[in-house]
Structures are given as structure tokens and as C-alpha cells.
Nucleic acid binder design. Structure first.
Ligand code: MN
Ligand code: MN
Ligand code: ZN
Ligand code: ZN
Lengths: 146, 146
DNA sequence: GGAGAAATTGAAAATGACAATCAGAAAGCT
DNA sequence: AGCTTTCTGATTGTCATTTTCAATTTCTCC
């Protein structure tokens, strides 16, 4: 299994793009970052050590990561696109706390199977899906009872 | 079962809001409209008969519909919020064609059940969910083979 | 049928995330 | 090194959505 650095550099090469130190820096920070961050989150984090990297470059590079398949773009409906490192064999969906923003990942193969059945029912050729459960995390649910 | 007009007027009353003719007009157009329309769609449709109703009012009124539960807000990731009249006992999810924009509704009780199991697994108290399958509709899938 | 308080309206401007621009810098091939 | 192509980052543009605010409308209470 190819690692994410290799996937990215292969992609760079195949498209005739260039290996810049900004891209290297952003890739490292991306892989070291915890999931579900926005462009701005990563930009602010990077700025501490690399004040010369611009917001636009971070944004374009994250788009590149998504293009080559090492990142996935998430939209939890709060007006900010989020990113997460994507491991090809580890697809998952999300539980989102509407009170504190906590994000929990889940997998449920039985749901994935049923999605295929639904697609077949309507003759759709599915490329991807979005499945998010919104509500209160255990902590916020408990706090709300008070 | 209360109809949508009653739900809305009850909501208006309970919040100390006022019954304006714009709201009445927008509610009628909303209920007569086919699903999955944007604020602009409805605004343009209304403008033919009611050129004095402003975009902001249409927008605010649709938000009110969502608040009181007679509309649901949809986000298919194309940068435009869409709305649909919501019938309380007819929850459904969506298949979206990424080529032509066709939207097909589906229900799958087994998936809904499994969602509850997932929520229970993580002690989440689910309020709502978003479940969309993106891909090619039969027509676009066929066209792509050519 | 008003008077008065409170909510509403609609045109316009503000907001904010994202995308495009472009001149100077860097990469990489020969 | 020279040359061509791509990249960078500050800035500007875009566009859906939200806010503003003065004028209007609604609605309660005489
Ligand atoms: Mn995740
Ligand atoms: Mn629908
Ligand atoms: Zn929470
Ligand atoms: Zn289609």
C-alpha cells in the first residue's frame, strides 16, 4: 500500500506539477494534523513556524490533496469546508454534536450495503455519499438535562 | 394531523410575530412549488405575480418555514441552499446526479434503524441526519458510455 | 374607527468563504 | 547557466447569504 507522500509525489509528477518547499511543508502539517480542520485552521497552525506561506497556497494545496485522493473534503453545514487525511481502505462517516462541535467517526458496513441496494433500485451509479448524524454528544446531552 | 398552514400560523402566534400578506403569498407559492428549489428560484417565480415582494423577505420567510418545521433545508454542496416542503411523516433522503442535477428521493427504513443503532453505540442523541448518494442517474450513466 | 407600540418590509450595503488574478520567484530540464 | 513552465502570495473579485434602516404594516387597546 502506497503511503500518502508517495501518492502525492506521483500525482505531482504525472501532472507535470512542481515539487515546491511550500507543498512539502503543507503536506507534513496536513499529515500531522488531527482531522476535520478548515483551511484557516491549517493556515494559522502553519503560520507559527512558516509565516511566509500564504493562505491561498494552503487552500490550493489542500485542493490538490483532495484531487489526488489523500484528503477528503467535508461539509458539516457550518459554512466552512473541512479536510481530513484519507486512508483509502478506511472510509467512515460522522456523528456531529450540534452543541459543542465534537465530531465522532463511525463505520457501519450494513449501511454501506443498503446504500448500494438503494442505488440499484433507481439505477444510479454512485460515486460517493455523504452521511452525517447530527445531535448531542453524551456530554452535551447530560448538560442539557440540568 | 395539522396541515402546514395551521402549523405556520400557530408558530406565528406563539412567537408574537405578525400575519403579513407577503408571508401568506410566500406560503402559498411554497406549498404549490415542486421540491428542491433555492431562495432565488422561489423569488423569481413569485416576482411574476408579485413584483413587490423582495428577495430578503422570501429568504427570511423560508427560514421561518424551516424553523417551524414545515420546510427542510437541503445542501447538495453546490453552494446553494435548497428547500422542500416537509411532511412530518414522510422523511426521505436523496440521490443526486452529479452530471445533470436530477434529484431522486428514497426511503430505506433499514438504514434509519441502523442509524439509531450507530447513535446508541456512541451515546449520541440524534436530532437529524443528512444522507445523500451522489453519482450518475440512469440517463447520464448511459450517455457517458458513448 | 383610530392611536400607539412592535414587528415587518425591501432596497441597499455588509459579510465571509472561496476562487481568480498577476507580477515576481522558484523549479527543473537541457 | 539559460530558458520555459509552474508556483507563490497579496490582493481583488465573486456570489450566496445576512444585516441594516427608514418607511410601512400589523395588531392591540381604547
Ligand atoms: Mn473523519
Ligand atoms: Mn426531497
Ligand atoms: Zn457536544
Ligand atoms: Zn443525470
Amino acid at each position: 500500500m502506497m503511503d500518502q507522500m508517495t501518492i502525492f509525489s506521483d500525482y505531482i509528477r504525472s501532472k507535470g506539477l512542481k515539487n515546491t518547499c511550500q507543498r512539502k511543508t503543507i503536506l507534513e502539517a496536513f499529515l500531522a494534523s488531527k482531522s476535520h480542520f478548515s483551511t484557516e485552521d491549517l493556515y494559522l497552525k502553519l503560520r507559527k513556524q512558516h509565516p511566509n506561506i500564504g493562505y491561498a497556497t494552503v487552500h490550493r494545496t489542500l485542493k490538490l490533496f483532495a484531487e489526488c485522493g489523500i484528503a477528503s473534503e467535508l461539509d458539516f453545514g457550518d459554512g466552512q469546508t473541512r479536510f481530513e487525511p484519507l486512508d483509502i481502505n478506511q472510509h467512515h462517516d460522522h456523528l456531529v454534536c450540534t452543541n459543542c462541535g465534537l465530531i465522532v467517526e463511525f463505520t457501519e458496513p450494513r449501511i454501506e450495503k443498503l446504500q448500494e441496494q438503494v442505488a440499484a433500485r433507481y439505477n444510479f451509479k454512485i460515486e460517493r455519499h455523504r452521511h452525517e448524524l447530527y445531535g448531542l454528544c453524551p456530554k452535551c446531552a447530560k448538560a442539557q438535562l440540568v
